[in-house]
Computed example of a mutant assay.
Amino acid sequence: MSNSIENTKGVVLVTDNGFKVVTTARSDEKGRRTVESATPAQRSNLSYVAVGDIAKENAFDSAFTKGTIFDYVVHTASPYHLNVQDPVKDFLDPAIKGTTGILKSVVAHAPTVKRVVITSSSAAMINPLNHAKVYDETCWAPWTLEDVKDPQKAYITLSEKAAWAFMEKEKPNFDLVVINCTYTFGPVQRNLPSLEVMNASNHRIRDMLQGKMKEELPSTAPVFTFVDVRDVARAHLKAITVPEAGGNRFYIVGGHFSNKRIVDSIRKSYPKFGERLPPEDAPDDFPADVYGFNNGKSVKTLGLDYNSLEESVKDTVQSILDLRLDF
């Protein structure tokens, strides 16, 4: 299993379901932090391997050459952050080379692997230039290598396409499942050292709690769909354990949202933050003609039952409060 799903919920859930997990990290510090985020009982089934730069050739080989026999591999390690210096180095190389690299390492060193699960994104589906009326697993974003200067466009689409192309060309002994999740809210990791390093999707909830949006709500666009991180984690677990999932991509989306709807949920569950929030009559920019989504495949095949926005926001706020970090 590769880097933890958003905030280690995936690693913890898999260990809870009886699997022994070897997670990878780019440093010993990050690896120890992932293991320490688990309970003492979970740690007995959890270890890590430091792999460094995942864009380098054979970066993942060390994870498969230490004697452990693997049945499944879950690769979630495509980066996303807002401090972009070099789109190719920061996004494209780790995404494409990291994805194809782990597939090559499995072929070369892990003949017992039955299935590889890769975390992609709705960004590999959504076409903001010409929105579909309803998005599902048949949809692909239109981006090509020429769009790489805009990292939010190209890197996820190209890395997922590279994975499917690898499967078509190499025809390995394992099958592939791809999880396409959207903006991901939900409880943050238990050992988060500061509010600055939480997953990017939850930044907006953090900023609301800190009063940074009190004067004016920013635009919600371009994404109006969300999913709870616990549903993302369950999707990855089901992708491992459900035989019929093999060879499929799954659109993992719980519903629609807007910044105003998040604010309203915070105000309802935590009225003490009212003075830090925009006024109740702040406008909602949720579009009447917003694109739809069809998550029926994930419900039918993976058996998902999605958390609501209100549940997700409430639990996200509580998890931040539980950290007892200064606002």
Score class of each variant (00 low, 15 high):
Val14Arg: 00
Asp281Ala: 12
Ala282Lys: 03
Val223Ala: 13
Ile179Thr: 11
Leu302Pro: 13
Thr184Leu: 07
Leu323Ala: 08
Asn259Trp: 06
Val299Thr: 14
Val88His: 07
Ser62Met: 00
Glu275Val: 03
Trp143Thr: 00
Tyr72Arg: 04
Val232Leu: 02
Leu323Asn: 09
Lys56Tyr: 02
Lys268Ile: 09
Pro128Leu: 14
Thr301Gly: 11
Thr34Glu: 01
Arg33Glu: 14
Met125Pro: 00
Leu192Gln: 10
Asp175Leu: 07
Glu244Tyr: 05
Ser159Val: 09
Val177Arg: 08
Pro279Gly: 13
Pro278Val: 06
Phe174His: 10
Tyr80Trp: 12
Ser27Leu: 08
Lys149Leu: 09
Asp71Leu: 00
Thr65Ile: 03
Asp147Ala: 01
Lys153Ser: 04
Glu170Arg: 09
Ser308Tyr: 06
Lys114Trp: 10
Asp28Asn: 14
Ala50Lys: 06
Ala288Phe: 00
Ser27Gly: 05
Ala25Asn: 06
Glu170Thr: 14
Gly303Val: 08
Asn202Asp: 15
Trp140Pro: 00
Arg33Ser: 14
Leu237Thr: 01
Thr119Ala: 14
Pro94Asn: 04
Lys169Leu: 08
Ser37Met: 03
Ala235Asn: 06
Asn191Arg: 06
Thr119Arg: 13
Ala163His: 10
Met125Arg: 07
Gly67Pro: 01
Glu170Asn: 13
Pro287Cys: 05
Leu237Lys: 02
Ser159Arg: 04
Asn307Gln: 14
Ala25Gln: 11
Ala55Ser: 15
Glu168Pro: 13
Thr184His: 09
Ala154Gln: 02
Ile69Tyr: 05
Ile262Lys: 10
Gly52Leu: 02
Arg276His: 13
Phe327Gln: 01
Val197Asp: 12
Phe327Ser: 04
Phe250Trp: 05
His203Glu: 12
Asp284Pro: 12
Lys212Val: 12
Lys56His: 01
Thr34Cys: 10
Val49Ala: 08
Gly247Tyr: 10
Met167Trp: 11
Ile240Asn: 07
Tyr183Phe: 08
Glu137Ala: 12
Lys66Asp: 09
Tyr270Ala: 01
Thr301Gln: 12
Thr301Leu: 15
Arg26Phe: 13
Leu46Asn: 07
Asp71Tyr: 07
Gly296Met: 10
Thr220Phe: 07
Thr220Gly: 13
Asp175Tyr: 08
Ala233Asn: 03
Glu29Cys: 04
Trp143Lys: 02
Ser265Phe: 08
Lys153Phe: 00
Ile240His: 05
Phe19Glu: 03
Arg267Ile: 03
Ile69Val: 14
Thr8Gly: 03
Lys238Thr: 05
Gln85Phe: 08
Ile5Thr: 11
Phe64Gln: 04
Ile156Pro: 01
Ala282Ser: 15
Ile156Met: 11
Lys153Asn: 03
Ala141Ile: 01
Ala154Trp: 02
Ser2Phe: 08
Leu129Trp: 07
Tyr155Trp: 10
Tyr72Ile: 00
Asn45Thr: 07
Lys9Ile: 00
Gly98Ala: 05
Pro79Asp: 05
Pro243Met: 05
Pro111Ala: 14
Ala233Val: 02
Asp86Trp: 07
